[in-house]
Design a protein around this nucleic acid. Structure first.
Lengths: 132, 132
DNA sequence: TATAGGGCTTCCAGTGACTGGAAGGTCAAG
DNA sequence: CTTGACCTTCCAGTCACTGGAAGCCCTATA
């Protein structure tokens, strides 16, 4: 299997797959021509990585998760801990974005948005109504 | 006013203030010794930038907002348009994070998190229950 | 006056996770 | 034998800083 087949099947760009090899996440074989040759295991690993990344796990988390995935003697508690920590980060990020959203929304709603220069958004930014 | 005073008053790190000068967001004067000298206008500009950044505006948006702020003939509609577009991006990001959060939360709740190797989080990542 | 410390300067490199592009080798079809 | 798609590596850029080194400047104290 060549890289473009893997790209198609995993939904990952070929560039990303090469990058994942470069940082040691996957280790495809090489053909006599120098091309990367992917076996089904590599395909599965890359699909796994793609899904973990889609859930927002960092590359380093993905590396750990993948090694736990391949370690049949793992403790599920180790996996859950990583996931829970990541969930907390997501929750924190959502809370922060909501805060930003609310402040910004207030400013927007108070702005006429016409051709006149008076703008509560700018005064808000200038005078500190925007402490998020 | 030296840079550390401005840093303290705006809450921005001195490094960031230097960076903002480097990319042309602010133009402090220079003393005979080569030190940056900040007037009140610079202080206000930096505070403005800090608040805009805290609301998640990109540096380029900040640049535009600052120039609109200083243009007394601006149309508030121009400001509002930038803000609205940014609000939409924030909303999209929140929606995406919520999706990730929900999927991840389902996986976490179905995982025992003990010393046994069985782990629905890993099987979910492996088998595609995690298409966010 | 010498020195110690803190603050200031510039410049370079690194972050995370890719992404774009150039230069060039390889393969299959016609 | 050529064409065009595919593959390779390597380098640079993204975004918004952040850390650190090397070295000048300023003030206070001995």
């Amino acid at each position: 299997m060549n890289i473009s087949d893997v790209a198609e099947q995993t939904g990952l760009p070929a560039k990303t797959i090469r990058y994942y090899e470069e940082i040691g996440l996957v280790h495809p074989d090489r053909g006599a021509n120098g091309y990367r040759v992917f076996a089904d295991t590599h395909l599965h690993q890359l699909a796994f990585l793609g899904r973990a990344r889609a859930l927002g796990f960092s590359i380093e988390d993905c590396r750990t998760l993948l090694s736990l995935y391949q370690d049949k003697t793992r403790a599920s508690g180790d996996v859950k801990e990583i996931a829970q920590e990541h969930l907390n980060e997501i929750d924190a990020k959502i809370a922060q974005l909501r805060q930003m959203r609310d402040t910004l929304n207030d400013l927007i709603r108070s702005c006429a948005g016409d051709t006149r220069p008076d703008c509560p958004i700018l005064t808000g930014l200038a005078e500190g109504q925007a402490n998020s």
